[in-house]
Write a protein that binds this DNA or RNA. Structure first.
Lengths: 192, 192
DNA sequence: AAAAAAAGAATGAACGTTCATAAATTTATA
DNA sequence: TATAAATTTATGAACGTTCATTCTTTTTTT
């Protein structure tokens, strides 16, 4: 159906516009009229697709989080060793942060501001349960430390956000060697 | 001078009000009229102390960053070993994030949004040069990996922000044992 | 011709900021 | 030392603008 397709495209255009504006000026920089203009749409039209600005931002958050998770767990091979699986996920996440800069920096903005509903935030957490499951197994196998998933996330994944941030500000460059060093640091922080 | 004192107190009240409001509703939640009301002052009065809202937020950022640095480097003993000195700084920073929750979560919000001028951000970085200097020495002494300060920061200090965030959302608790585990993870990620 | 989708104009509220004026304080004059 | 002038500090109301959202009308699709 061409119409449905058009609707989907318009929704996507709106979310993309929001993403862009939030990244450049924070949530306050993404006014409904600016979003509308950037998406080539009337402000009123937004409300055919979203209940409110809050709803739109929440939906954007979930969409981006889902695409982050999809990237993170792609080519995931349950046959491989625990460490290899973790390594794969880690580099997938790193690639996402490097290549999908807009999406990644939006997520890091969401994670540190009250701009997303707590409920929506909780829902977004579910996307990365495969990683938590892997950690559970890794702990059983005595491959990594017996720490809480929060601590494991804090020291292996979260640092990527900082590095991405620094790269975006041109304060450092995330080449292959730096990335390898970063993974080594991540692994060293949790391995047994 | 009682007058000067009163002025300083009013400035502090304004900054404290801003801190509070930004933490609870982001930069958009801290409107000038709300800040004024919370500080028991007329909106117009704010402009006797600050050029603009941006200026006020920038100054708050620098003030908080300075007090973070002061906390981080207190009781700093150059006689101690490099590792002991790093450990001291790390736990100082952790204590700050645990005990000065408002200040700490404000900083983490600043670090991940476009709400602070790049120039002001640069100035804030200077406060933690002692840590960078220590890392330089630690690298010379072959005690830690030869990584960029950004990478070292990403894997040792930045994770604290995540853990604090989780604690503030009551998703985890930062007791003494967790903190010790966290330091071990931080150290393991960079030690040689 | 009917229904659905989109538009632009308009809504009241809230924004950051400025204004003219009032209160408080300091300085100068007696 | 007391008082008047001058200066500083603070105010509440008002500024123009922009905000998120809604209303009415027009366009597009069925």
């Amino acid at each position: 159906m061409a119409l449905l397709q058009k609707s989907i495209e318009k929704r996507m255009a709106l979310l993309k516009a929001t993403l862009n504006l939030v990244n450049n000026g924070g949530i306050q920089g993404a006014s409904m009229s600016k979003v509308a203009k950037l998406a080539n749409v009337s402000p009123a039209t937004i409300y055919l697709y979203f209940e409110s600005k809050q709803d739109m931002v929440n939906q954007l958050y979930l969409d981006v989080k889902a695409s982050f998770a999809e990237a993170a767990f792609k080519e995931y091979d349950p046959e491989k060793s625990v460490k290899e699986r973790f390594e794969k996920i880690w580099f997938n996440m790193a690639d996402f942060k490097i290549n999908q800069k807009e999406e990644a920096s939006f997520l890091s903005q969401c994670d540190n501001t009250p701009m997303i509903d707590e409920e929506t935030r909780q829902e977004g957490l579910k996307f990365i349960t495969p990683l938590f499951d892997l950690w559970t197994k890794a702990k059983e196998d005595r491959i990594i430390k017996d720490s809480s998933p929060y601590l494991l996330y804090a020291f292996t994944i979260y640092p990527l956000a900082f590095l991405m941030n620094m790269e975006n500000r041109k304060l450092c460059q995330l080449g292959d060697t730096v990335l390898k060093d970063a993974f080594q640091a991540a692994w060293d922080s949790i391995k047994l």
